[in-house]
Design a protein around this nucleic acid. Structure first.
Lengths: 213, 213
DNA sequence: GCTCATGTAGTCAAGCTTGACTACTGTTCG
DNA sequence: CGAACAGTAGTCAAGCTTGACTACATGAGC
């Protein structure tokens, strides 16, 4: 599962109602085009697909005053909200070596209640430890680990990544336990979207992390 | 870029000449179906696509003795060998948060000469440090980092991952400097493929790391 | 001697991703 | 003034990925 659906659902949800370009802009504001597959094609595709599947409701809107083709605005349906939380919870607990999914979930973590976020993150640590154990067992068969040669370095990489991931998760858990950030039901929500017409202060036109070639 | 082309080219290259099922089996032997997108559909697609592009040469072969449809055997062309090394070098130096690509490259690292492998890995460390710097700058704009709220945790994640990645790379560099493993031109190459008819000793039928749902 | 599971080898449709492209409007600057 | 550029909004074809499916052969167990 890629991060795109979570990102799009989350972005639309923040606005209440949003058109594709707005979503696209928000995701750029968050830097998501740098570390995820949040490119125009994927975003518009996800919007249409999720509308077909009843996760989003579409409103046809007259062409904007600012030029360009007619827009479509989207809103989450009840099913869409459900799916959003399903994806969010799943992305926080699953350890699939896809950091973009985790980063996306992190962006929406405050949409949960603090207690649940903590439960999910503790579960994440457990999952990582399971993976670590499974990796060592898979790559250390009966014949002993000596046979592996440089292939053992692959195992080493996974172990190292798993340990780093668990350590990072532990750190986050500690910060949340100490009361960091404002979660659902704790008043004064963090917005983090661009109002209509607001300019992205991070959009400098320069190259950014993740730019390849 | 996904890991599939590198994996397939590398697997075919190890055999000299191989059909799809053989490649599929090798990749499973390496555990690649667990941590990469090396699934049948992707493998056969990659083989056909790369044949179209002149990276592989196809030989039609009569149906095998062991049942099943007629097979096609593939061999790397000169262009394919070139592409293999291009991908291999690129995957070792690029830092794109896709650990499956790195793992794949790791599997073939000994196809390079030791000196070049070391150069590439040192370059990798540099690239990671650049990314780290770019991330902190992107997420710490003029207004100061306090504004970020929980979004700052995304930055934190990237920083943590970058540091872990650099540390791991350093470790590998040290092991290679100390003479670990047998590289191209150092005699007695490591094979790591299954001979025709050999059984995968790791294929237990059990669930493995990376298995989801 | 039959059936069922397993192994061999690969195909296919549906969905997803990518990068380039369209088409229009405002703004800026010489 | 007019050309160039940046912004708004989205489309499209080509390629890639996924998961389920086909078809045949062999061997194990009843």
């Amino acid at each position: 599962m890629s991060a795109i659906r979570l990102l799009v659902l989350g972005a639309v949800r923040r606005h209440g109602r949003a058109h594709g370009y707005q979503v696209r802009n928000d995701l750029e504001y968050w830097g998501a085009h740098e570390w995820s597959n949040a490119k125009p094609g994927s975003i518009y595709h996800a919007l249409k697909q999720m509308e077909k599947q009843g996760l989003l409701h579409a409103h046809e809107i007259a062409p904007s005053t600012a030029g360009g083709p007619p827009r479509t605005e989207y809103e989450l349906t009840a099913k869409g909200t459900e799916e959003f939380f399903r994806l969010l919870r799943g992305s926080l607990t699953a350890y699939d070596q896809k950091p973009d999914v985790l980063a996306a979930a992190l962006g929406f973590i405050v949409d949960l209640e603090r207690a649940e976020a903590l439960t999910l993150l503790r579960e994440r640590v457990r999952v990582i430890q399971d993976w670590r154990k499974a990796v060592t067992e898979y790559y250390t068969p009966a014949e002993g680990p000596g046979l592996l040669g440089h292939i053992g370095e692959i195992m080493n990489l996974w172990i190292h990544s798993a340990d780093a991931g668990a350590e990072w998760t532990d750190g986050l858990i500690r910060r949340l336990e100490d009361g960091a950030y404002s979660f659902a039901g704790e008043g004064e929500p963090f917005s983090g979207v661009l109002a209509e017409g607001e300019r992205n202060p991070y959009a400098t036109g320069e190259r950014h992390p993740g730019d390849e070639r």
